[in-house]
Amino acid sequence: MKYIDQELVVKRMNGRNIVNTLFKGLFLLATLVSLLFLAILLYRIGTQGISHLSWDFLNNFASRFPEKAGIKAALVGSLWLMAVVAPTSIILGVGSAIYLEEYAKKNRMTAFIRTNISNLAGVPSVVFGLLGLTIFVRALSLGNSVLAAGFTMSLLILPVIIVAAQESIRAIPGELRDASYGMGATKWQTIVKVILPAAIPGILTGSILALSRAIGETAPLIVIGIPVIIQFLPSGVMDTFTALPMQIYDWSSRPQQEFQVVAAAGIIVLMVVLLLMNTVAAIIRNKFQKRY
């Protein structure tokens, strides 16, 4: 007496294979849904906005009239914002990562800092806006300046940069540290001359991706009161300014249909900026493929 009837197994196998194929199709479909959505989104916004895209659009200030509305103040403002966010967030992020990876002892304080960083990454961006509003705009009286917005955004992307920098530092083989210490180098010399140079491609790639998140963030800017209708360019970090996503938000929320086209054109500009940043990140990543 056998427990398994091979004939029955073969008969059932057909059904099981059909179920397998069916679900494979469903899972493939699930994968394609997001790709399809991305394609529709890009196509739709591309066709909507391309007609409004022109040199004038890039070179005009905001306007009540959709046909005259331009993105100059927002584009330049976003660049100003990045000029504050990039150094601030990279110095803080890389410094924190070096501390955690190279200096921190395995104690409660370190564990607390680590947990804190991962929790901070989960705080909604609008809450960072409230922090910026209270601390930078009001308590430190920076107003709705480039500096206030830049500091807020830096804190927002700080966890991303710390984690990216930690991973790149951790990827450096211990043998390189040994080699440096073995030559009589001090810890800081080893960090500056061996570890950081080897980790820089990874740090840069991660930082650029984090910055591309900052350049597209809207909610914190709204909360700290960044205006949209601006007819001048900032001349310093204490000036008020506007940014690409703010401008797009303003155009999108206007009732006139014509402004939707302007908003789509603005989105194209924003996406091109993001594409450029991501391309740079990809080039860095490929150029400095790990050698050890």
């Binding site: 991305l38 989104l41 916004i45 998140r213 597209g216 809207t218 993001l274």
Partner: peptide, 9 residues
Amino acid sequence: GIPTIVYGF
């Protein structure tokens, strides 16, 4: 990586 403002629009 697409900004949420784009999704909103």
